[in-house]
Nucleic acid binder design. Sequence first.
DNA 1: TTAATATTGAGTCGCAATGACTCAATAAAT
DNA 2: ATTTATTGAGTCATTGCGACTCAATATTAA
Lengths: 255, 255
Amino acid sequence: MDDILFTEEFKTNPDKYVLPSVAINNVIFGFDDNKVKVLLLRTAYAELWTLPGGFVLKEDELITAAERLLKLFTGLDSVYLKHFGVFGAVNRAEKERELFLNDQRQDNQLNYNFFLQRFVVLGYLALVQYKQVSPLSDDVRQCEWFDLESVPELTFDHNLIIETAFRELRFQLNYLPIGFNLLPEEFPLKSLQKIYETILGKKLDRGNFNRKILSYGILEKKEKYFSGAANKAPFMYSFNKEQYFNALENGLGAF
Amino acid sequence: MDDILFTEEFKTNPDKYVLPSVAINNVIFGFDDNKVKVLLLRTAYAELWTLPGGFVLKEDELITAAERLLKLFTGLDSVYLKHFGVFGAVNRAEKERELFLNDQRQDNQLNYNFFLQRFVVLGYLALVQYKQVSPLSDDVRQCEWFDLESVPELTFDHNLIIETAFRELRFQLNYLPIGFNLLPEEFPLKSLQKIYETILGKKLDRGNFNRKILSYGILEKKEKYFSGAANKAPFMYSFNKEQYFNALENGLGAF
DNA sequence: TTAATATTGAGTCGCAATGACTCAATAAAT
DNA sequence: ATTTATTGAGTCATTGCGACTCAATATTAA
């Protein structure tokens, strides 16, 4: 249970339950409306938004901890989740030190002392299907999707963490299950193309893109249609899971 | 100073000086005699070898801690050094738990309790010029180069850490300053080719390799010669640092 | 002096992939 | 009927790559 974090017992005795000075932050990417999205969390203590995150319970494997947090904030399990970097700058809590000074409410102090410690943050990158996520929303915490291009100023060094995660995403574009994890079960080819275009930051030629992506033999054409627009309905496709992961091993070649 | 680690004061009070439950291990790669080498450390407490490593002093940046350790074990600073993974499995100290039980010397016990804690290890990968390294050797600790293919069983999960580092090395071959950091200032083209062949695990055609590597315009031909063998002396080359790092940004294309 | 050895330069050849195109047929909504 | 975007099926020139060959050169050892 993550919610040990919100008990009095944890606040007075955190090192009994979690690995000291180690924290986890998840950069959760989604894709919708032709834009890369990232899931952020409204903090209780300030106007700043923050990355969903938490700590490693003593009995948890690292990846288990990351999965537990992902589940907490999105409701999902078994999605793509991968460590991509560490963040432990000495001064990464400077901003918070000031913010907390301005909030003298007694019952927050214990928490503040805990959060102002120096942590080594393990960054985990998640790729999820936008529509499947139920962003956490309870009395204290609310999650919301943001366009990657309009992420506001965040707590700690979280802006840096997101930048790093996205650079990793771009770098590994041909080695990560990008489409597979970001798109729903069935999708038109253009959606996949848009993902590549967005991440690469450049336009791709439809014919060439289709020629190439289909040549891998990882897609299956469906008979179903998508409707609603004033044009011919595009064919839907789905990934052949087995062949897809097979092909990823060797990389999909560069776009 | 790293050697705080060897004082009584540190042994009784480690959390005062270093970040608790965080450790660093360096996988230090060199290249000599057409083989990839890795620097290992003889442990005081057992026959097993181990990866050079240590802890993060409270005032250290993470990379500073990794650099400090690299310096301690190799005598070098300012080489290529990069985080490549975390290792924090719950059971990663199982092997040591048994080993330590067999050594009941009183003055080792404090140390043992410290090392048997659960740590999250930050893996750093270093590329160094083999000949420039002065492997640490003092009363307690001795470093030695091992061929990557004949690394013995190591402490903890260090074999896994090395495997992961090498996979990263191969994966990033065209994006890392491989040759630049592994080779001496001047070298014959064949040496560079051998590095690529060794890391990729396959033979490359000389003509094609030279054609490609020279096409990047990152190498400068020197007039000097290398002698000693019963054949025409090869030309020596050196990297044009500026153009090299420029080209790396975009990757060197795949071999 | 000669033989053995590995480096070097300068190519060829065919194949596959890529990027930039074009043209026309099709289906769906207004 | 008109507008719109999807779709299929191409072309074409360029580039890069892998697998080659052939001959000249420098060096050491016999």
